[in-house]
């Protein structure tokens, strides 16, 4: 019995290790290939490079306009996530705790939730027209608005559910001390929201940073490219030069992977609780 168990244990160990290697291999593959010379990538693409060619990275860096692109993505993500988290929390608080006009606030809440079943494609055609009318087409302000609005359903839903678990006695005490509802929110509730805010920030950062469809259609012009967009147009230039292309891909995933390896517990935990709660 124990011998059989040990055998199963070893088999599981081998299968899992192999599986992890297979999953991670494509990333190691692009890393190795990104250092190969133009000649070596044709003759022996999959071996460890005989010499490491850093020129691929220099070329990729320049033609992607790497720092600019990284700056654009960071700006977009930070603004969307910071403003978004703040206003999701405020709205989530309002829909749970409003004392009068409950019907009005629950209508607002269900309108926010409609975003769960409306696919983002539905808004695309009107957005192109609408942003033009508001003089927001091809601007970051417009895209930030679209991304915040797109995350509304999940954001408000998670916040609302979290706030309804907080006992009201806390707030009532503050009200007796002369605090207005807005004051109660900022002084008492918002600090308590930390766990769910961390989850939201992680989920939204990854979504916004990796989003491709919205920048592609709503943010035209080379100067405004985000990371996924830059990679997309980069492929067009280097279709046959896998080494330079892979240097570009590596550059584009490094920032997020570095953050992942540092904060992996929080990221896994955040994504998991986000999925479980919504």
């Amino acid at each position: 019995m124990t011998l059989k168990r040990e055998k199963t244990q070893i088999v599981i160990q081998i299968i899992m290790t192999l599986f992890a290697v297979i999953i991670i291999y494509p990333m190691i593959m692009i890393l190795l290939m990104s250092f190969k010379s133009d000649a070596e990538i044709v003759t022996s693409p999959l071996t460890i490079p005989s010499e490491f060619v850093f020129a691929n990275y220099a070329e990729a860096w320049d033609s992607m306009n790497y720092l600019r692109v990284l700056g654009n993505s960071t700006f977009l993500t930070v603004c969307t996530v910071a403003i978004g988290t703040m206003i999701y929390s405020m709205a989530g608080y309002a829909v749970v705790r409003a004392k009068r006009g409950k019907i009005f606030f629950s209508c607002v809440f269900y309108m926010f939730l409609a975003g769960l079943v409306i696919p983002p494609q539905v808004t695309l055609v009107p957005l192109v027209v609408w942003l033009k009318a508001l003089h927001l087409s091809n601007t970051f302000q417009g895209l930030i608005g679209v991304m915040i609005a797109g995350g509304t359903a999940t954001g408000v839903f998670l916040i609302r559910n979290f706030i309804s678990t907080i006992p009201q006695a806390l707030e009532e005490a503050a009200v007796i001390d002369g605090c207005s509802p807005i004051g109660v929110f900022f002084r008492i509730i918002f600090p308590l929201l930390k766990p769910i805010v961390v989850t939201l920030v992680i989920m939204n950062s990854i979504n916004v940073w990796n989003d491709f469809m919205h920048p592609l259609l709503l943010l035209q012009g080379a100067a405004a490219r985000t990371v996924p967009l830059a990679v997309y147009f980069f492929k067009g230039e280097f279709t046959t030069q896998w080494n330079v292309l892979f240097a570009g891909l590596t550059l584009s995933i490094i920032p997020l992977l570095v953050v992942y390896f540092i904060l992996q517990r929080h990221i896994m935990g955040g994504l998991m609780s986000g999925a479980v709660k919504s």
């Binding site: 999953i23 991670i24 990854i206 990796n210 995933i253 997020l256 992977l257 990221i267």
Partner: peptide
Amino acid sequence: APVLINAV
């Protein structure tokens, strides 16, 4: 790890 990598 691949969860973090964008679709492109």
